[in-house]
Amino acid sequence: MSAYKAFRVELADKIAHVVINRPEKVNAMSADFWTEIVEIFNWIDTNDEVRVVVISGAGKHFSSGIDLMMLAQVGNQLGKDPGRNADVLRRKILELQASFNAVDACRKPVLAAIQGYCLGGAIDLISACDMRYSTLDAQFSIKEIDMGMAADVGTLQRLPRIIGDGMMRELAYTGRTIGGEEARSIGLVNRTFVDEAALLDGVFGIAREIASKSPIAIRGTKKMIGYMRDHRVDDGLEYVAVWNANMLQSPDLRIAMAAHMSKQKPEFAD
Rank of each mutant, 00 (worst) to 15 (best):
L199C: 09
A241M: 12
A122K: 00
L111K: 01
Q249S: 13
P160Y: 12
D252S: 14
G59Y: 07
L78D: 04
S214L: 06
S99I: 10
G175T: 02
A122N: 09
A259G: 09
V189Y: 01
G179R: 04
R107S: 03
S250W: 07
V153K: 13
A150C: 04
G164F: 07
V26W: 02
I40D: 04
V203D: 10
V203G: 04
L71H: 14
G202N: 10
R158K: 08
A3Y: 14
L156P: 06
G187M: 10
Q249N: 11
A128R: 02
N21W: 14
K14C: 00
I255F: 11
G75W: 15
M70P: 06
A258L: 06
G83V: 09
G57E: 08
R229Y: 15
S30L: 11
S185T: 08
T221D: 11
S134M: 09
A72I: 14
F41R: 00
S262L: 15
L125I: 06
G59R: 05
G166Q: 10
D32K: 11
I93W: 11
E267C: 07
L94F: 12
A207P: 03
K263W: 12
P251A: 05
F41Y: 05
N190V: 13
W243S: 08
S56R: 09
K5I: 09
S185K: 14
H61E: 01
A245W: 05
D201A: 05
Q157G: 01
N246I: 05
D32I: 00
D201G: 02
G179P: 02
D45K: 08
A16M: 00
S63Y: 11
A207S: 06
P266C: 06
F204V: 09
I15Q: 02
Y173V: 06
L199Q: 02
K60C: 06
D195V: 05
A245P: 00
I66P: 01
I162Q: 06
R8I: 01
P251H: 10
C129R: 00
E170T: 15
D124T: 07
Y4C: 01
D81C: 03
M228T: 13
G57K: 00
L78G: 07
K222P: 05
L68V: 15
R22G: 05
Q77G: 00
R8K: 15
K5E: 12
P266R: 14
A258F: 01
A58C: 05
P109E: 09
T174K: 05
V19S: 02
V242S: 14
S127I: 00
A198D: 07
S185Y: 13
D32S: 15
S64H: 13
D32P: 03
